[in-house]
Nucleic acid binder design. Sequence first.
DNA 1: ATGAAAGCGCTAACAC
DNA 2: GTGTTAGCGCTTTCAT
Lengths: 337, 337
Amino acid sequence: MATIKQVAALANVSTATVSRVLNGNYPVSKEAFDHVMDAVEQLGYRTNQIAKSLKMNKTFMIGLVVPDISNPYFMEIARGIEQVVSRYGYSLIFCSTDEEPEKELRLLRLLNEKRVDFVVLASSLKEADLLQQLIDQGLNIIVVDTYLPNLKVDFVVEDNENLSYKIVDYAISQGHTKIGIVNGIMDISTAKERNSGYLKALEDHQISFEERYSVNGGYYRDIAYQNVKQMIQRNRHDLPTMIYATNNQMTEGAMIAIREAGLRIPEDISIISYGDITLPQLVEPRITAIQQNSRVMGEKAGEILINRLENKRSIIESDIYVISSDLIVRNSVRRLT
Amino acid sequence: MATIKQVAALANVSTATVSRVLNGNYPVSKEAFDHVMDAVEQLGYRTNQIAKSLKMNKTFMIGLVVPDISNPYFMEIARGIEQVVSRYGYSLIFCSTDEEPEKELRLLRLLNEKRVDFVVLASSLKEADLLQQLIDQGLNIIVVDTYLPNLKVDFVVEDNENLSYKIVDYAISQGHTKIGIVNGIMDISTAKERNSGYLKALEDHQISFEERYSVNGGYYRDIAYQNVKQMIQRNRHDLPTMIYATNNQMTEGAMIAIREAGLRIPEDISIISYGDITLPQLVEPRITAIQQNSRVMGEKAGEILINRLENKRSIIESDIYVISSDLIVRNSVRRLT
DNA sequence: ATGAAAGCGCTAACAC
DNA sequence: GTGTTAGCGCTTTCAT
């Protein structure tokens, strides 16, 4: 690969002049300009961004660390970020943690070593201290989707508890009282918050929480499928009239389990979902769900980090941005009253 | 951020010794080792991979360039690649071209400047010459999914024409003769090959190709939706009995259009698909489809590039690997005979 | 407007 | 087993 030195030699100018021509940030004579351009063309020269990054202490790369990159929810966040940061010349490195805290930390350390300019993180961490350590080492982080207390970073999150309350409250208004919940790992803020919204709604309507209708596990389709399958098995003679799944993939898993058990939705068991399933237009019945604006969440995160980066605004205290979401009532809830 | 120099100073050794300790590739005394480790710990030192990359002319990054990163098909390829290359310490940079040739070239140039060690490319290019130019400049490329003639790279592809033939042949065996096709952009190899498989199957059964049932456009859900909607409109009084969509997303778009037109699948119009739709378990009827092994395609690409990279086997002539796929018969085809 | 040269943080050849 | 040092390819200050 040709270097700036070879270009300089061929164009009969110094490397400084080549650099100036290439970056267009200093005045150069038309003559020098033409010679350099010719040489560049002839040699098929391409800037070595690694060298440039080293010199300028800037990589134009953004790390994205999420629990599950195949979840369309996170994919949409990625596209939102990409859409805004690409305009400023940044590229994205995607990483998937599979909800494993050790893997998350390993990936963050890797990105730190790669000197990415910023990391967008949807965390599965229970505690913030190791994260704070990385930040102290100089890593720029913005946290999306999840929330971690006592961490000096910006957050872009949803109003999980209230939205969860809202959808469960709706279910209750349709006459349901035996409402099972399929939730994620309780260490994670979103799972905790969605759970408390659910509990609060039950409580406000004097409905007691039934442990036996409740299952927990990773935010994955398969896990939810297995758990719901077993839950149905266990309660075969006194099934819940409704299942509330707290993320898109769990809803899919729950639906598959319900159908496989020979039960109908919503005639036998109604469904509500925090987050739209994939392809909601093609699946019958249409699922009543909290519709998350993940794209907007990504865009917001992108804007914030660009702002920090371009204006070199270092963080004094964390800002928390809340992305709005809507309850979309469709027809997966049977009216019982 | 601490540098190796500061570590060396604090540990009272040379930078060379620090490097040796950190990389463990040369013998060091236990004493030096301990001192260095202490200093590393104290300073929170993290290797600057940018500097290392510059020195070693190796970035441990792989670029992935595909038409549409939100398509689960390409996502699976990505996971396949990731799974194998991550074991060797490589990370992935994802890029989406939206099937625009200019964007594809721009991204490839960017990755070249970033000096990624390899690029995995699903191309939307019509011609190979500009690509060959990049390769001559030193970019390592492996092409997946698509095929481009006269290009000195390895390929991992499907047997598109034969598989396409197979599924259309099956449709014909069920008594269908009015079979519309929803296809991608004809510049792209996969679209061309799937089209010829379709045509050949018709021909072998003396069925004439009906232009009016055929629509083309980008491999996207929305485009297919619009096109099929119009096609149905135009042929309202003499509809095809079957629609063959040549990729997963087009099938989804076609199904939505059919349903919206008040038609039933498969009673009014049958469906066959090249590639499984998202969530095939939850959509009724279950779609008869070519089931692509995209994960395997990604793994294969990963293995090949690792092999080239680690064994420094430069490419003499292109190898072509064909990934097998299966026809899965389900119940989206009405039997007419 | 242009060139010489220092230096970003690292590795490895060479000398001891 | 360890230190010295050159140099990867670039930008930028300083001098002219």
